[in-house]
């Protein structure tokens, strides 16, 4: 582990690369700004990122490189082939990159499936459930539903013998149609199912947070999901992680979102950020654009931070200490995510967010109750 501006930093566990900020659909809960900008990351930015990481001394034996933040399949396949070649060549002998991406699924065809197989890319698809749940929020720019086209993409993956992870955003509509949601996922049988309670972030004011009694209703939903997972054998990401933490990890666990340079985010324009990937693209009067530096700057170093980012790191560290001191769930959480603290409280110091209550505390209680029940 290195030290930067008085903070322990790294190792880099995940690199989030924004191939493009453009998205071909217009989900009602999206937090990303500028989803109409069609710029694709120049290959010299990819090269500069690879060189900066290779010379940082902060890489372990493996690192996840995740194409995200925008719809990655709107960028050309040839871009990814060349970017992967640059990254593999530059990082050879230092670390093994593991490529993954998160897609809305609409553009998956046989050519993309061949690419995923050839490049060993782990694919995640964003699916919220049956049409009356998924299409309530995941809309085209012409205000039409997207499920039927997304499922055609999933069918192409299956026809090619490729598995996929699924992430669902859980909204009030999901909670109204829990049985239909779980039946849909039981038929789909993804490699793993991730549950993201709809968040207040960026331009989105969560409809979940504005619905009545959302905390107890979300907890009841999670208990149903845990029973469903045991019955169907479909792994639920949040429950699996929490079980591992409870049964076998050294406590307190570490939240990579509040550890400097554990996650490194690179934007299409070469700006580099860390902590929660969502921070990239947001601005604040006190911190500027949450960017630690620009890869196009000849003197760029991962461990030389702009003043605004150093201030951000100080405040995130204070926020983590606040969590450690005052929250009973810190041992299984590692401290609230900076993006949620900023979106809900306009501060990185301070503690509990509504995301904490749903995304961590409720999960912890369901898993602890389940394992205590298994003891009896």
């Amino acid at each position: 582990m290195s030290e930067v501006s008085g903070h322990p930093a790294g190792p880099v566990r995940q690199i989030v690369l924004q191939a493009t900020g453009f998205c071909n659909i217009d989900c009602r809960y999206c937090y990303l700004p500028d989803r109409l900008t069609r710029t694709v990351m120049p290959l010299d930015v990819v090269s500069a990122a690879a060189r900066a990481l290779a010379s940082s001394g902060m890489l372990d034996d493996e690192v996840e490189i995740r194409w995200h933040a925008g719809e990655p399949l709107t960028a050309p396949r040839d871009f990814y082939a060349r970017a992967h070649e640059i990254l593999r060549r530059t990082l050879a002998g230092i670390t093994v990159p593991r490529f993954s991406l998160q897609t809305n699924g609409l553009l998956i065809d046989d050519a993309w499936c061949s690419f995923f197989r050839r490049e060993d890319v782990r694919v995640g698809v964003s699916l919220d459930g049956p049409a009356h749940v998924h299409d309530a929020y995941r809309r085209t720019r012409n205000d039409r539903g997207t499920l039927s086209r997304a499922m055609r993409g999933v069918e192409r993956l299956r026809a090619a013998g490729l598995d996929c992870d699924v992430i669902s955003v859980i909204t009030p509509v999901t909670l109204l149609h829990q049985e239909a949601y779980l039946d849909f996922m039981a038929r789909l049988r993804p490699r793993s199912l991730g549950l993201n309670p709809e968040e207040t972030e960026g331009g989105n004011s969560s409809t979940l947070h504005r619905s009545s009694g959302f905390e107890p209703r979300y907890r009841a939903f999670l208990r149903s999901v845990a029973a469903w997972s045991a019955r169907t054998g479909v792994a639920v990401r949040e429950l699996e992680r929490m079980r591992e933490h409870v049964l076998s990890h050294r406590l307190p666990v570490r939240n990579t979102q509040n550890e400097p340079l554990s996650i490194v985010t690179v934007g299409t324009d070469g700006g580099v950020s860390s902590f929660s990937p969502e921070l990239f693209g947001w601005r604040s009067p006190d911190h500027g654009d949450f960017v630690l530096g620009d890869l196009r700057d000849p003197g760029f170093r991962l461990d030389a931070w702009r003043p605004g980012f150093a201030r951000l790191a100080d405040e995130v560290a204070q926020g983590r200490r606040d969590c450690a001191r005052s929250c009973g769930y810190f041992a299984l959480c590692g401290g609230g995510a900076p993006a949620n603290k900023w979106a809900e409280h306009q501060a990185f110091t301070g503690t509990r967010t509504r995301f904490c209550a749903l995304g961590v505390m409720a999960v912890a209680d369901v898993v602890l109750d389940e394992l205590e029940g298994a003891r009896r």
Binding site: H245, V246, L247, H249, Q257, Y329, R352, M361, L368, R375
Partner: peptide, 29 residues
């Protein structure tokens, strides 16, 4: 925030974990 258990008691999360375990760093995001 406190954790309420099986027993209806308020117990610390650490206590609940220890009790489960008695019957590797964890990274998460």
């Amino acid at each position: 925030p406190v954790s309420v258990s099986d027993t209806g008691r308020v117990r610390s999360v650490e206590d609940r974990v220890q009790r489960i375990r008695t019957t590797h760093p964890g990274y998460t995001a």
